[in-house]
């Protein structure tokens, strides 16, 4: 949580925020790209932005009560791009400091598959943010199942997250997984429960107050 209190928790908190930043860098990259920067420049700028963020401990100043992490990152990025762009270009870009293992090639691939339309950079950022949240949650969900050696269960039942399968489909999955049909029903229920928990936990990390989770979900829905 952003608001891990206490002096000793400071570095832990910093690390948690860095982790968050690592998850959500792609929306920032997409924003920069949308600003009209080349892939190379966009990558450099994103790197430099994070370098600055981490180096200056700006993340430490994130006050949970002030609002959403999403808004904070975007505001910081805008600030960075407008005020520190020139400076960065001279100081940092030459050095090409890498603070995050950004997979630039994949980033560009991801970016380029996206439909070309008339979205503003902010809109792109927010949309990618919503996507990143979901990707992260599904990644974790899959990892949870993999860790238990139940990757197959996840693979077979992930469709059931959204759609209650017809009985025949349950029977099919049951056969495939060597479980009874009843057990499959329960496993699908559990999968949904876990997914929900992960999603809400993930969003809880980026908002000031658990009360805002639903509000943020609604907002993200609007961003899709």
């Amino acid at each position: 949580m952003l608001a891990a209190g206490g002096r000793n928790a400071d570095s832990r908190r910093q690390r948690a925020l860095e982790d968050l930043a690592r998850i959500y860098w792609f929306p920032l990259y997409a924003y920069v790209r949308r600003q009209g920067q080349s892939p190379q420049t966009a990558e450099d700028l994103t790197q430099a932005f994070f370098a600055r963020l981490i180096e200056k401990h700006s993340l430490r100043r994130v006050d949970r009560s002030k609002g959403k992490f999403r808004s904070f990152l975007l505001a910081s990025l805008k600030h960075f791009l407008s005020n520190e762009y020139d400076k960065t270009r001279t100081e940092k870009r030459g050095g090409r400091i890498k603070v995050l293992a950004l997979d630039a090639a994949s980033a560009e691939a991801r970016y380029s598959i996206e439909p070309v339309d008339h979205m503003t950079p902010e809109r792109v950022f927010e949309q990618r943010w919503a996507w990143a949240v979901l990707d992260q949650v599904l990644l974790r969900l899959r990892a949870q199942y993999d860790a238990r050696g139940q990757g197959g269960v996840f693979e077979a039942l992930k469709g059931a997250l959204l759609e209650r399968p017809a009985d025949g489909q349950y029977a099919e999955s049951a056969c495939e997984l060597g479980m009874t049909q009843g057990a499959v029903v329960v496993a699908a229920h559990r999968l949904r429960g876990r997914y929900r928990k992960l999603l809400r936990d993930e969003i809880a990390q980026t908002v000031a107050d658990p009360q805002q989770i639903d509000e943020e979900v609604q907002y993200l829905l609007g961003c899709l």
Partner: peptide
């Protein structure tokens, strides 16, 4: 994605 979010 929309349905996934709604589930949350």
């Amino acid at each position: 994605r929309a349905c996934l979010l709604k589930l949350g």
